[in-house]
Computed example of a mutant assay.
Amino acid sequence: MDFMALVHQAQALAQSGQRRILGLVGAPGAGKSTIAERLLAALGEQAVLVPMDGFHLANVELARLGRSARKGAPDTFDVAGYVALLQRLRRQGADEIIYAPTFRREIEEPIAGAIPILERTPLVITEGNYLLLPELGWQQVRPLLDLSCYLAVPDLVRRERLCWRHQQFGRSPAEAEAWVLSTDEPNAERIAAHRHLADLELSLD
């Protein structure tokens, strides 16, 4: 499937007359945020973006749990909070505003209450790594999605993007490569193992 086919699918969801949720899933560096922003540009006021990354545990909590070196792994997110938000969005009441968190890469921390979702917005786009993971609480996410799309990117391209991203936010080239190989890649393999659970697949290069 190409990007315009995904746009048409998203437009059909937005025009269904009910609140719909579209999930974009892929490994770190797959381009989830970029595709989500392009969808928003195509759909305008019909859609809003709610990123899974807003549910990263804070750095102080990761340190307390001893998980700082694995930041980005499935157990470094508040999955119950993410599921609860998706459930609220499915049953949002008239004139109710629901606030979602976002994630700021420049400080590597989630920010609460940053994204207002209005009841009149028909489509919620959510993007993240673990929307298809069938364990650790993440199995509750997929039934809340009306449509899921896996973003497939060549591994070499994806790893190059990740190394560049980590360097942009303060790591040296050697530190960036080490983090990609030790942390991002094990997560990527876990995510790719469940790509068959997606409704659609978008191939990117």
Score class of each variant (00 low, 15 high):
V153Q: 11
V157F: 13
R165Q: 04
L133H: 13
F169M: 11
P143L: 09
A176K: 03
E127K: 02
R158W: 11
Q168R: 14
G128T: 07
L144G: 10
I125R: 02
G128W: 01
N129K: 01
R159L: 05
R159W: 02
L132A: 05
S172Y: 03
L162R: 13
L151I: 05
Q167P: 06
A176F: 12
Q139Y: 12
R159Y: 00
G128Y: 01
Q168P: 10
F169E: 08
E135T: 14
R159Q: 14
A174W: 15
R161P: 07
P122H: 11
Q167Y: 00
R158L: 11
N129M: 07
Y130T: 06
L131F: 05
V141Y: 00
T126K: 01
V141L: 04
L156I: 15
R165S: 06
P134C: 08
D155M: 13
P143H: 07
Y150F: 15
V141S: 05
R158C: 10
L151G: 02
A176Y: 12
Y130F: 12
R120Y: 10
S148K: 06
Q167K: 08
D146G: 11
D155N: 13
G128C: 05
Y150G: 04
C149G: 02
T126L: 02
Q168Y: 11
V157D: 14
E127T: 04
